[in-house]
Nucleic acid binder design. Sequence first.
DNA 1: GGATATTGCTCAGTATGCTGACTATCAGTA
DNA 2: TACTGATAGTCAGCATACTGAGCAATATCC
Lengths: 154, 154
Amino acid sequence: MKDNNDMPGHLARRFQQIAVAVFLAEVGDAGFDLTPVQYAALATIKANPGLDQVTLAGLIAYDRTTITGVIDRLVQKGLAERRASPRDRRARELEITDEGRRTLRKITPAVESAQRIMLRGLSAKEGEDLMRLLHKAIAAGNELSRAPLREVQA
Amino acid sequence: MKDNNDMPGHLARRFQQIAVAVFLAEVGDAGFDLTPVQYAALATIKANPGLDQVTLAGLIAYDRTTITGVIDRLVQKGLAERRASPRDRRARELEITDEGRRTLRKITPAVESAQRIMLRGLSAKEGEDLMRLLHKAIAAGNELSRAPLREVQA
DNA sequence: GGATATTGCTCAGTATGCTGACTATCAGTA
DNA sequence: TACTGATAGTCAGCATACTGAGCAATATCC
């Protein structure tokens, strides 16, 4: 029987597990309390001011039921705001706060450090290869999860 | 600012997300209700009869607090048994049941199919490269998560 | 215009994963 | 043997992720 450790699914889980641990450790050492998921959401809100929750979910491939709680926590920490959209009363527009902007700016070195650490076993070229292969596999499997990546349409 | 989609941590999350979705879809289509985590635990119990929970957790890099619930569910489904160890009254010995063995056997094609599907965007060589690079990165980061991989000592 | 379908969001429930704390037990040592 | 430390397991609490259901609002079609 094939070993678990030779299955891509198991390796995916392990790598993600390490990536999250490294992120939390680096960001925690820098004095911040932000998860990888919250960071990605906050950075995407900053880059796309006023976007609604479904669009945000699509941009970072989160499930729409997951994003609700993530935003709850960003709002509770004072990093983002959620307000009713004037154009569509079902939707909520998201904005980053000044506090959120400050946090993003100060947290960036720790985030970048975390990305380096999770690839520390690989040479620069190997790191690039890994990223490229992951990209390719993810692109081919994008529609297979409930929360696929969705580009913003023009 | 660097895009989320260029960060290894984000790619790790995406790949894992797709891997789980593919696994559940394939296994579900085959008529079984087993998660990737439960599958790995069950296969490892089968390969190491009588092992205790901490050893099991080490072999598949699960946290010891996570394994409790996973085993609960395997036991509840009748696929595994948990009994007190005669040698160490703190420990629980784990055994696969006949039903568990049958399930593992019948589920194998779906599991293997899932592994193929999650790499479907890659050539055979690219798939091997991805596995090798993940292995290498994981080995270097093994100690960075709370639940590192632990080999069984002789 | 009105029925129908779709969309944005939320909620309840389940399954990982983690932190931190706790109990029971075992191992080593003074 | 009593003390100390380590270990096996569980539990409470929190944060992703998902399924499926539901509500309110918008879009579409006849």
